[in-house]
Design a protein around this nucleic acid. Sequence first.
DNA 1: TCAAAAGTGTTCCGAATACACCCATGC
DNA 2: GCATGGGTGTATTCGGAACACTTTTGA
Lengths: 241, 241
Amino acid sequence: MKNHNSYFVSQNNAPLKDFISFGLSVDCVVFGYHEGEVRVLLVERDAEPFIGSWALVGDLVHPESDLLNAANGILENLTGLKDIYMEQFFTFDAIDRHPLGRVITVGYYSLVESQHHQPIASSWAKSTKWFNINKLPELAFDHQLIIEKGVETLKDRVRYQPVGFELLPSKFTLLELQALYEALLGCKFDKPNFRKKILKMNLLKPLDEVQENVSHRPAKLYAFDEEQYDSLRKEGFAFEL
Amino acid sequence: MKNHNSYFVSQNNAPLKDFISFGLSVDCVVFGYHEGEVRVLLVERDAEPFIGSWALVGDLVHPESDLLNAANGILENLTGLKDIYMEQFFTFDAIDRHPLGRVITVGYYSLVESQHHQPIASSWAKSTKWFNINKLPELAFDHQLIIEKGVETLKDRVRYQPVGFELLPSKFTLLELQALYEALLGCKFDKPNFRKKILKMNLLKPLDEVQENVSHRPAKLYAFDEEQYDSLRKEGFAFEL
DNA sequence: TCAAAAGTGTTCCGAATACACCCATGC
DNA sequence: GCATGGGTGTATTCGGAACACTTTTGA
């Protein structure tokens, strides 16, 4: 027996309103990098449920907003951070993942240069804090799972897309870049070889600047050349490692 | 001004019910492979909206179901296919993507060996048909976009995960495997080199069988060795190309 | 002058490439 | 025998790994 009057015909002809009954949230795994450590920004909840627990930066989405705008707004609302690199990675839909009802959440990850972006807790965030990804506290909801999946996704993507640069200041040395990749991927690279490989890609603009106030030979500074990356990509170039 | 009584405090203290107002659907990009062509399974809609148009296998999700189960059930309901490899790849949330209200959809892709899995239209599917991914018809909703993103994701993943095998019969020749990868990635491989590379991975079980009824030297048949893959992966082995 | 990190050059090895060539089967 | 695709071997090239070495600064 078919019903031609609706899109909603496949599930026992239940009325439309029975389906418009999901809550939707976004949760953002904000990654930072500091002194060789990969970190995640968490907020201390000052609201039920899970009041007092640490949680990801996230909140419910209003039906009139799209997810990416909502994610940016929530990040700014809770931590004051804005104009941050952000990308969707997975949607979490376990039936019992939210104690107050059926809420599915879309996971995003962000990459911020944490030296110059100090978060400031506001709204229902009592405080915010960076945690080493290997030393996480107890977390609200299924946020442990979301972080694990986010870390996994970042590790996958960082090898084939030049996203890691978002975690560094705009000017950086080659050894800083190397240390970042070592922290992200959990391995070591040979200095001369890493240097050769990354320079051969022609993605870095050498600057006419060097480090200052270091008690050793100052290193040359480089910047990521986004225009060059775009044009190389059009020619079929693939970033790798 | 903070409200400690609810999770829903960050957006003007709107009441809970204002947020529980999303529809949720799944859309499944079902990939098949036949005679050197990568194909997508579409259904002809026999329901409003977009009645008569071609669309992805998809439907609204009931609030008591999780997404993966819903996706499997919808696939079976519309096409009769079951026990199919399926994986989430992206969530589409454009505000106006569904004409009847705010419905976000989670995209999955499936890989089926299309020779031995003939879909049979039922429920609100008037018919089903395989389309070459480069010759798609006009599509309902934002399904064009979903397919593009699905194809892109498949191309990315197929190089680093041995998912391609799901598209082949359980017994296949090395040249069939090569032709599949050539179709998926849109490039050509050297026969001896492809053979060496894939065999060195130790992921294929050589069978004691050969092709039959071919007017040339019959090729040896192989099967994907899933156990071997799992154990290699634990040792840090990474499938590539 | 010494420590510490920046930066370069060279050798070695294994993997990818590009071929040329032989083998088994149906017609 | 010959067309067709199956299957093997080898020479060459290229890139990564390993490592020794020099350079520049501050203290």
